[in-house]
Amino acid sequence: MIEVQNLKKSYGIHEVLKDIDLHVKKNEVVCIIGPSGSGKSTLLRCLNGLESATAGSISIEKVELTNKKANINKIRENIGMVFQSFNLFPNLSVLKNITLAPMYIKKLKNGEAEHLALNLLGQVGLREKANVNPDTLSGGQKQRVAIARALAMQPNIMLFDEPTSALDPEMVGEVLNVMKKLAKEGMTMVVVTHEMGFAREVSDRVLFMEDGRIIEEGSPEQIFEKPTQKRTQSFLEKVL
């Protein structure tokens, strides 16, 4: 589904990603962990073209995103993204946040789009919030709406960029539960997270990144129980 080869990303002389290779299969849930500034978020943002690659190639479902002629909008329709800071549109109601893209891109009629949106809101447990302004929601509710919004385009891949890092501790659970449900339903997911419990429980594969490189990757058991790299060990000692 996702093929990343020799990906490099620099800002000026500062190299943020150094030679990244990553392959994500259909239905796979991959969690990326690592210290701040290790390039986790940059890698994720490269996957839907929010950051452009300096070198290397990225293909999403066989379509090369790093090709200049690629239709980036078309590729993005198929990749949902959830941000740390939610990024709901405060000028639109919760419902309109979700219906905007399907109505514009898929040309859904108002009724169809609303039906779809209410369905998705039901799935994240917020059906009754359809007509409120996003600003009135709690952090956990906002993030669940953001997930519903991303799902409205019926993407095959979902990217999560530290989806619970901006939440009060008591709201982390409700968001993780929605993500767990998605994973169970077979969604292909790449999740940048500091929630080690989630990474351990839900992911098929865990990547540890530091200093712009993937230092170690493996099953959650392997990474959390018996990491082979010193740097992985010392990171996990600090966070667990």
């Binding site: 909008n73 993005r76 990749i79 941000f83 800071s85 000028n91 639109l92 891109i105 919004r149 409205a152």
Partner: peptide
């Protein structure tokens, strides 16, 4: 307007102009 607004709109597959008109300019 926070750059996350444009990023969120674009990540949904919306073109730049639509994102501008529907999301950024009203705010």
């Amino acid at each position: 307007i926070d750059s996350g607004q444009m990023e969120a709109a674009r990540s949904l597959g919306l073109p730049y102009g639509v994102s501008m008109r529907k999301v950024i300019l009203p705010q």
